[in-house]
């Protein structure tokens, strides 16, 4: 019991320290690293709450995959040292004030709540509470619709990421097509205005769609 309390306070200190580090540190790279520490401390807290599968998913998916994505993007963009502090606008003052007011409000709501279960240590649960078997049975039986909706959401996000990443290349291809269109337009322009020039300048190398207007004009 005393070991559990020590573990809780160490993990809570780590979680709050990591969260403050994310907000306060100037370099985004260090913010990402602070968030990794925060997520690992949160995984310890999840284990204390008997959520073993969620804790494992937190470490593998969040601290592993998602944070690697963040590190890649930070390395791609480059760590921009951002000035922090009351630089401009009333939001710099109002932001922390709003957060403090929110904290007071949530504290009142939690401490003043009449939920008897919150002030206890929770009921005794079975040994397989939070195990992969229990979560899997819940996901595939009781929450099948939510499970399928989540997979569909992931598919949509993956497609959207591909589209977002390819947008620039699409623009470049459009920019590469524009000179071709400009180079092809002037022969058709004089042809449409001057049939004599079109008749004299109608070599075999012309495209079909350019020859068609002259035929139409000749008839």
């Amino acid at each position: 019991m005393i070991f559990e309390q020590i573990l809780f306070f160490v993990a809570a200190a780590g979680a709050i320290g990591g969260a403050v580090g994310v907000v306060v540190l100037r370099n985004p790279f260090f913010s990402v690293l602070a968030l990794v520490g925060h997520l690992l401390a949160l995984a310890v807290l999840f284990l204390l709450l008997r959520a073993e599968f969620v804790a494992a998913a937190q470490v593998v998916v969040y601290a592993g995959a998602v944070m690697v994505l963040y590190v890649f993007v930070v390395a791609y963009i480059g760590g921009i040292e951002e000035p922090i502090g009351p630089s401009a606008g009333p939001l710099r003052v109002l932001g922390p004030l709003f957060a403090g007011v929110l904290l007071v409000e949530i504290a009142i709501a939690t401490i003043g709540s009449g939920l008897r279960a919150v002030s206890s240590t929770g009921p005794a649960v079975a040994d397989d509470f939070g195990s992969p078997e229990a979560i899997g049975a819940l996901l595939l039986q009781k929450f099948l619709i939510a499970f399928e909706a989540a997979s569909f959401l992931l598919l949509i996000a993956a497609v959207a990421a591909v589209v977002l990443a390819q947008r620039r290349r699409g623009l470049e291809e459009a920019g590469g097509e524009t000179p071709l269109q400009i180079g092809r337009r002037p022969p058709t322009g004089p042809q449409a205005e001057d049939p004599a020039a079109a008749g004299s300048g109608g070599p075999a190398g012309r495209a079909i769609d350019e020859r068609t207007p002259t035929v139409a004009q000749g008839s």
Partner: peptide
């Protein structure tokens, strides 16, 4: 359980303060 709930309230408010004060979209 109340300890965990209060801790989650703290973390939520720290995150809200960060969203409101930081300017880098990544952060």
């Amino acid at each position: 359980i109340a300890w965990f709930v209060v801790l989650s309230a703290f973390i939520f408010c720290i995150g809200a303060a960060g969203v409101l004060t930081r300017r880098n979209p990544l952060v």
